[in-house]
């Protein structure tokens, strides 16, 4: 409740100087409407982020003693402490396949379901449902449904496919399921909207000239869809990369799903080592940025290739 007064008072305080400077540049006062939002962004996003960045160079005495490296002690600890640095690999091993699967499985689905048919609205509504379920309920449901005594294992044993119940939760697979259930609808909705943005007459033209569906998909749809696929991949990857509750609830939190977010929370909430927690959080951002950059580079490469072929 204290936030609006906070935003407002800062806005009015800076009004005088701001108006003066804006008037000099010939910009009218309606730009002041932007001020509350800017104050919010600066106070609640930019300031904490730079503060956290600074915090990573102020390691606690304990960290400094154990790992050395002076102001960079947190980073030394991050790379040298295998318990922490292994989590990077563990996170990647979950997030990359999950994001890839969500995008690749969405393409044929979106392709198939792009036309009007009975029940499409129902299907879309059902697909939005997992978004309202949230990770915690999905986790609880997976534990019951796919657990050792759950309906899934019981059914598979009953029809004689397996003898022993499969271990589907409390391990890598459990987190994977939860990532697909929460990430797939999102990827599907996005790719559908990108697909509907492609002019159907282009495909019709190719068809007239005798291209079969494989050629049409490979030469027409895919190049046009590629930028959208890259964006979808990035967004689903970001979702999967920061997986946190499900890694703890349906995963093996001390083993195969000890992801970076868990390590960051462990430093923050359990060890009360704020500098180290910020370090892990910032490193998460850096690694994620690296993956996003790689995808964007690949995308520009692919796009150039296809237009070059056409031209």
């Amino acid at each position: 409740m204290t936030s609006p007064p906070l935003g407002r008072s800062t806005a009015t305080r800076s009004t005088a100087s701001l108006r003066h400077r804006l008037a000099e540049r010939g910009i009218d006062t309606s730009l002041l409407m932007l001020v509350p939002a800017l104050v919010f962004a600066l106070a609640l996003f930019v300031y904490p982020f730079t503060y956290g960045m600074g915090l990573t160079f102020q390691p606690t005495a304990a960290t400094q003693e154990k790992w050395g490296g002076g102001a960079f002690s947190n980073y030394v600890a991050f790379f040298k402490d295998t318990f922490v640095s292994d989590s990077v690999w563990l996170t990647m091993r979950l997030a990359l396949p999950a994001a890839l699967f969500n995008v690749l499985a969405s393409i044929p689905m979106a392709f198939k379901l792009r036309h009007r048919f009975r029940g499409k609205k129902l299907l879309t509504t059902l697909l939005v449902l997992p978004i309202t379920l949230g990770t915690v309920l999905t986790a609880q449901g997976l534990l019951i449904f796919a657990g050792r005594q759950g309906w899934l294992n019981r059914f598979l044993i009953q029809i004689g496919v397996i003898d022993q119940p499969l271990a589907l939760v409390n391990n890598y697979l459990g987190v994977m399921f939860s990532l697909v259930i929460s990430g797939f609808p999102f990827a599907f909705l996005l790719i559908s909207s990108y697909l509907s943005g492609i002019d159907p007459s282009i495909e019709a033209a190719a068809k007239t000239m005798g291209a079969d569906w494989k050629q049409r998909f490979r030469r027409i749809i895919l190049p046009l869809l590629a930028p959208g696929l890259a964006t979808t991949f990035i967004l689903t990857f970001v979702l999967a990369f920061s997986v946190f509750p499900s890694a703890r609830l349906v995963g093996d939190a001390m083993g195969s799903t000890r992801v970076m977010a868990l390590m960051a929370y462990r430093a923050f909430g359990e060890q009360i080592d704020y500098p180290m927690a910020s370090t892990i959080a910032i490193m998460m951002g850096v690694i994620e940025l690296a993956v996003i950059t790689a995808v964007l580079l690949w995308r520009s490469f692919l796009y150039k290739g296809s237009t070059g072929g056409k031209g």
Partner: peptide
């Protein structure tokens, strides 16, 4: 720049800026 500034918190995973924010 301002558009980018508004876009960042939506694109970044919450825990990345959440931990420094919670520390504050």
């Amino acid at each position: 720049t301002i558009t980018m500034l508004f876009l960042l918190p939506v694109l970044m995973p919450p825990i990345t800026y959440g931990i420094p924010l919670a520390t504050v």
